[in-house]
């Protein structure tokens, strides 16, 4: 009996630390970052980095000195990247990753996951406002502004499938979508979800918060060494979790590992294509975009869903 408990414990510990959580997730994040960079390079007719470049970047950053600027709260400065990464890793527990059932699941975990994913932007914003650097401050303001603009449409877009499945539990929604491509019935929701993910990750054209030609690296300007490495890792984790969620909800499920990779990478290709095609939006323009079009699109989607539901019953 006692040995059973210990065995259980060990298995869950391994699940959290190595596979499918923890280390495996981090490595997958790096892999997807490489695919992202390589694809973008290909679309721009360049070579792009070699496969180990993201890993090499992280190792290099980890080996470097971490400079804590004067006049910042050192605990916050060091703690925020860790919280951001922890948020991403915790969210991973509820997501059907790499074709596996989520290791934890309860009714309403979708909301928890989405909020855990938002922790990254929140930590970025806090990290930026923690320093006195002016680029960081402007970057943090923009990060938080962007957070408030994309968050609601993104949430609504992910709730669409939940509504269709009649459950707020990721696992149940995923089972429901296994046989249905919600992309066909909720195309607008899909669009908003994809662009929302880009906003969350501050990818071009929604990269005003870290527009290097204006504010250097935005909120992360003062970060070097370990802090920067951890922030980058958590971006990778957020990227992969976001892709998983969207693929699971809109692209007909991800319970098969092969389909999982195929679908998430196809999704990544769409994102990279959008990245390549558009010029950066100013922060006021992207906020305007979200409130004027993003929200409207999801609302139309929801209206359609209600009407359709009414017709059906």
């Amino acid at each position: 009996m006692a040995s059973d408990i210990i065995k259980d414990l060990l298995v869950s510990l391994a699940a959290i630390l190595f596979f499918p959580g923890g280390l495996f997730l981090l490595l997958c994040g790096l892999l997807y970052e490489w695919i992202d960079r390589k694809l973008l390079a290909q679309l721009q007719n360049r070579i792009g980095p070699r496969w180990f470049q993201p890993l090499a970047d992280v190792i290099k950053l980890l080996a470097k000195e971490e400079v804590v600027p004067e006049e910042v709260d050192a605990r916050l400065f060091i703690g925020l990247p860790i919280v951001a990464l922890a948020g991403g890793l915790t969210a991973a527990l509820y997501v059907p990753f790499a074709g596996l059932a989520p290791s934890h699941s309860f009714n309403g975990d979708l909301i928890v996951t989405i909020y855990l994913l938002s922790l990254l932007s929140l930590c970025l914003g806090l990290a930026g406002s923690n320093t006195l650097d002016r680029f960081s401050l402007v970057g943090a303001t923009r990060t938080l502004t962007q957070l408030f603009s994309y968050e609601a449409p993104f949430l609504l877009a992910l709730l669409g499938p939940a509504f269709a499945a009649g459950s707020w539990q990721i696992q149940e929604i995923a089972t429901y979508t296994e046989t249905r491509w919600l992309l066909l019935s909720q195309p607008l929701g899909f669009l908003v979800a994809v662009i929302g993910l880009m906003g969350k990750l501050e990818l071009p054209p929604l990269d005003a918060p870290e527009a290097e030609t204006e504010i250097v690296a935005g909120a992360l300007t003062e970060y070097s060494g370990r802090g920067l490495a951890i922030f980058r890792l958590s971006k990778g984790v957020t990227l992969i979790l976001g892709l998983t969620l969207i693929a699971a909800f809109y692209l007909g499920g991800v319970s098969n590992p092969a389909f999982f990779f195929l679908k998430t990478i196809a999704l990544l290709l769409i994102i990279v294509g959008l990245k390549a095609l558009f010029a950066r939006l100013r922060i006021d323009q992207s906020v305007g975009l979200w409130w004027r079009y993003g929200t409207l699109l999801v609302l139309i989607q929801w209206l359609g869903m209600f009407l359709w539901g009414g017709v059906m019953t």
Binding site: N45, G273, L277
Partner: peptide
Amino acid sequence: KLGTMFQDVSSSFLRKPVTEKY
């Protein structure tokens, strides 16, 4: 128009990069 460089981007997808590997 939106995405005016779509032609370039899509045709590069299957094309060899021009970067020289000096």
